[in-house]
Design a protein around this nucleic acid. Structure first.
Lengths: 132, 132
DNA sequence: CTGTATCCATGATGATACTG
DNA sequence: CAGTATCATCATGGATACAG
C-alpha cells in the first residue's frame, strides 16, 4: 500500500491518487451518513430526516440528488397517498460501505484513545462534537 | 419513541455510527492528500507543497498542525541550514491508509465509469475538478 | 409527505506579504 | 526553507416559508 519510496531526497512523483475526486463523492458533512442509513434497506425521505436529526431538508435533498446523479443512490416515487419516495443504494453505492466502515472503525478507535487520554489527564475540558 | 418501520422486518435502525466524528479526522479538502503523501516516507513542508500544488502554505500548515494534535502525524525539526522540518505518519495515522485507499479505489472506479459514459454520450461538457 | 426557494451565518481556502 | 498574518471569496449548512 502507499506510495513508492522515493529514491533520494528529491520529490516523489505525485502519483495522482484519485483521492480528491473520491472524497468529493462524500461531499459535505452528511453524505456518508446518508449512505450509512441506506445500507440496510431503502428509506424514505422522512425516515432519513428522522435518522439524521440535525440535517435540514434542504441539505438532505441536495445530497440525495447528488448521490443519485452519481449513480450511488436510486430514487423511486411510490404512487401512494400521500405520495412518498424511497431511496436505496445501488450496487455501486454499496461499494462505498467498506470504505466508510473502515473510516468509522479508525474514528472510533481514535475517539476512544482521546477519551482515555482525557481521563488520564483529569477530565480536561475538551469541547468536541459528539459523534453522529 | 422508536420509529415504526414500514415493514415488519427489522432494519437498520439508526446504528449510531461514529461516522461524523471519523470524517472530521479528514476535515477539509486536503487532509487525506496530506496523509497519502506521507504514506511512503517522511516529507518536508516544501515537499508536501510540491506534492499538492494547489494547496496554500496556510492551509497546509493548518492541516499539519491539526493532524499532529490528533496524533496522526509527527513533526521533527531538523537542525540544518537552512532549517527544515520533517513530517511523518504515526502508527495511528497509518491506520487511516486502508480506509483512504478503499475510498480511492471506489472513486477511481466511479471516475472510469463516468468517463466511459461521457465518451458514449459524446464528450459532453462536464466541468469537473480534476483528480489529485 | 416530499421536496424546493430564499435568506443568512459560518467555515474553509487561496493569494499575498511578511517573519525567523 | 518553514511558517504565520491578514484579507477576500466561495461553498456548505441551517431555518423558514412555501409548493406539488
Amino acid at each position: 500500500m502507499g506510495l513508492p519510496l522515493r529514491k533520494s531526497k528529491v520529490a516523489a512523483p505525485p502519483p495522482a491518487c484519485p483521492l480528491t475526486e473520491s472524497l468529493s463523492l462524500l461531499r459535505g458533512a452528511w453524505a456518508p451518513n446518508v449512505i450509512w442509513y441506506l445500507s440496510a434497506e431503502p428509506r424514505r425521505f422522512g425516515e432519513l430526516r428522522h435518522d439524521i436529526p440535525r440535517i435540514s431538508a434542504r441539505v438532505l435533498s441536495a445530497r440525495l440528488r447528488e448521490l443519485e446523479s452519481r449513480g450511488l443512490v436510486t430514487r423511486k416515487v411510490l404512487d401512494t397517498s400521500p405520495p412518498s419516495a424511497e431511496y436505496a443504494l445501488t450496487p455501486l453505492g454499496r461499494e462505498l460501505l467498506p470504505a466508510i466502515e473502515a473510516l468509522a472503525r479508525v474514528g472510533r478507535k481514535l475517539i476512544d484513545q482521546w477519551e482515555l487520554g482525557a481521563s488520564h489527564a483529569g477530565a480536561r475540558s475538551r469541547p468536541r462534537r459528539v459523534a453522529v
